[in-house]
Design a binder for these strands. Structure first.
Length: 490
RNA sequence: CGGGAAGUGGCGCAGGUGGUAGCGCAUCUGGUUUGGGACCAGAGGGUCGCAGGUUCGAAUCCUGUCUUCCCGACCA
């Protein structure tokens, strides 16, 4: 097993790749661009799923499951949607293999060509809206508030573990409403769910906003997003929520009869977050010693490591350790006692730091004499001696403190990386330094494109509740009514 | 999908002018160890990414292909 990580300062990208592998989160598979999510990584994802799923249900949503395959004809029904996804779709053309004539392996049976090709879903709007047509007749059938947990495939040309993989896991919510206002409220509500989740569970502060036309979801009238800032100064879209208007309802003929007797098309939203959040989590909190996990998501929150010579000492320590474990479990703390004799304490310390365990308790013979344990905090890499008496009682609060400290640290970094600039020279310099840049923009897609060409920066969003302020576009000098948020992004 | 680099025991690498593969770490056994990745001794493990070709003989030369990394265009 490889050891020291490349420091972030030396090569951030290499640090990220090594960390994912060494912390046992995921690895590349034999399939180009597709990863294997390993148990430690998947446990974290399961934690995210559980927290999100609870929030979805609390806001009235139900889970369902739609097919992996989408008939090609469905895809062509919504023009903007096709444009957005056509270039990255995997297509199933045959349904059978046969033995190769040369006796080596199998080949596609050309006689088994599908009459209509199937798309492997890059997102499920089309199959879902085709289904909803049958579910909606009356205003009484609305709203439909459905979410699905699924995998999707987008044939990416350049992939990175968690951040951009060909296949990824996500949830996609798809809702149908009787009115425009209700659909917009739903999209806004889910954005708020994502923000609250990001901050309280992931400990990642985000900026909420709306996307410009260029960055909008294919087929949406409005895309809302939460944008986070990574340690290297690049932005990452952590979640999106879309107001789809009546585009899909019209494309798939989903209508209902309203109270007033009129037949109307329904109003739609969709919203999603993906395993990309794993990348966001890593790049927000982790350091050169490895992964740093917020306690709410850590599969192991507290690890106990005995330090001993000989059976006798181990027995004495285990007695105390096992009692502590039981007390912590009773308080709902996820705890592990690592009494493996095959590794030395120092090895274990490094291992758990690499894997991001928030708290580590070291217990040796000297500690037993003094009635203390050595308590190490992963986020600060600090150590202190704490009395065993009453220790278990204080652990939940300590975990809470770490959770808060991670959010505070990330929030401070976000605030410090938010720059306001008014000239093109300042703009270029600020983008080059990294971080978010608030600058005036004339509102045209062409200007946005030109800025992207020249600086690689994109408009991440127009922040919610953005104050209106007259100014001049940072590139063209044309009139602008507000500053928008720029950054280079993942 | 274009440009560059790379694939050799589990991991990191050497070898390379063609002659049948080696080092470090990891693994296994035994012993000594255990407060920040222990030490000694012994052992096991590789059809050199894959498929063709050249050759008496290929890890080495040629062709194709797959995968990974970096840079671009595209993107959650």
């Amino acid at each position: 097993m490889a050891k020291n990580l490349t420091p972030r300062e030396v090569d951030y990208s290499k640090w990220y790749n090594e960390l994912i592998i060494q912390a046992d989160l995921a690895e590349n598979s034999g399939v180009r661009g597709c990863m294997v999510i390993k148990p430690h990584g998947y446990a974290i994802w399961e934690g995210m799923q559980a927290e999100l799923d609870r929030r979805f249900k609390e806001t009235g949503h139900e889970n369902a499951y739609f097919p992996l395959f989408i008939p090609k004809s469905y895809f062509s029904k919504e023009a903007a949607h096709v444009d957005g996804f056509a270039k990255e779709c995997a297509v199933v053309t045959h349904y059978r293999l046969k033995n190769s004539p040369d006796g080596k392996g199998v080949i596609v049976d050309e006689d088994a060509k599908l009459e209509e090709e199937l798309i492997v879903r890059p997102t499920s709007e089309t199959i879902i809206w085709d289904t909803y047509r049958g579910w909606v007749k009356s205003y009484r059938d609305l709203p439909i508030l459905v979410n699905q947990w699924a995998n999707v495939v987008r044939w990416e040309l350049r992939t990175r573990l968690f951040l951009r993989t060909t296949e990824f896991l996500w949830q996609e919510g798809h809702t149908a409403h009787a009115t425009r206002e209700e659909a917009i409220a739903e999209a806004e509500q889910m954005l708020e769910v994502y923000r609250e989740f990001a901050e309280t569970v992931l400990a990642i502060p985000v900026v909420r906003g709306t996307k410009t036309a260029n960055e909008r979801f294919a087929g949406a009238l409005e895309s809302y997003c939460i944008e986070a800032l990574m340690q290297d100064g690049k932005a990452l879209q952590a979640g999106t929520s879309h107001f789809l208007g009546q585009n899909f309802a019209k494309a798939f003929d989903v209508k209902f009869q309203d109270r007033d007797g009129q037949v109307k098309h329904v109003w739609a939203t969709s919203w999603g977050v993906s395993t990309r959040l794993m990348g966001a989590l890593v790049m927000t909190h982790s350091d050169d010693s490895g992964l740093v996990l917020p306690p709410k998501l850590a599969p192991i929150q507290v690890v106990l490591v005995p330090i001993y010579r000989g059976e006798e000492e181990l027995l004495a320590i285990s007695l105390v350790a096992k009692k502590l474990v039981a007390e912590l479990r009773a308080k709902g703390v996820r705890v592990k006692y690592d009494d493996r004799d095959s590794y030395k304490p120092g090895w274990k310390f490094n291992e758990y730091e690499l894997k991001g365990v928030p708290l580590r308790l070291g217990i040796g013979p000297r500690d037993l004499e003094n009635g203390v344990v050595e308590l190490a905090r992963r986020d600060t890499l600090t150590k202190e001696f704490v009395a065993i008496e009453g220790l278990a009682d204080s652990i939940p609060a300590r975990l809470e403190e770490i959770q808060q400290a991670l959010l505070d640290r990330a929030s401070a970094r976000l605030a410090a990386s938010m720059h306001r600039v008014d000239s093109w020279a300042e703009f270029e310099a600020a983008i080059e330094r990294g971080g978010f840049v608030m600058a005036h923009w004339d509102g045209s897609p062409e200007t946005e494109d030109r800025i992207k060409e020249q600086t690689k920066a994109t408009i991440r969003c127009i922040p919610i509740d953005n104050p209106l302020e007259d100014g001049a576009c940072v590139l063209t000098g044309r009139p602008s009514i507000q500053r928008v948020l720029f950054a280079r992004a993942y």
